[in-house]
């Protein structure tokens, strides 16, 4: 198990979790979703191969209502 912070909350994950798996678990539908790890925005292509590592700070973001 590794300790990470996802959207500001401490979380324990299986060691080999990829970003794509984390997105599937949290968001389900990946439409309108973006991910940043340690203040670096990942491209969608990176999700499948990038493993979440011990201590990572992960932000999983999704489309929301907004505008002045």
């Amino acid at each position: 198990m590794i300790a990470v912070v996802v959207n500001g909350e401490a979380k324990r994950l299986g060691g080999a979790t990829t970003v794509a798996e984390l997105v599937a678990e949290l968001a389900g539908d990946a439409r309108g979703v973006a991910v940043a790890v340690n203040s670096e925005v990942l491209t969608r292509a990176e999700w499948a191969t990038r493993k979440v590592a011990e201590g990572d700070r992960v932000e999983v973001l999704r489309a929301a209502q907004g505008g002045c």
Binding site: N7, G8, L26, A27, G28, D29, R31, G32, V33, A34, E59, V60, L61, R62, A63, A64, Q65, G66, G67, C68
Partner: peptide, 18 residues
């Protein structure tokens, strides 16, 4: 054309502005 924002995913919330 409409504006949208990005916010943290809320678990269990389905259906979006998209």
């Amino acid at each position: 054309l409409v504006t949208v924002a990005l916010r943290r995913v809320l678990p269990g919330v389905e259906g979006s502005v998209l």
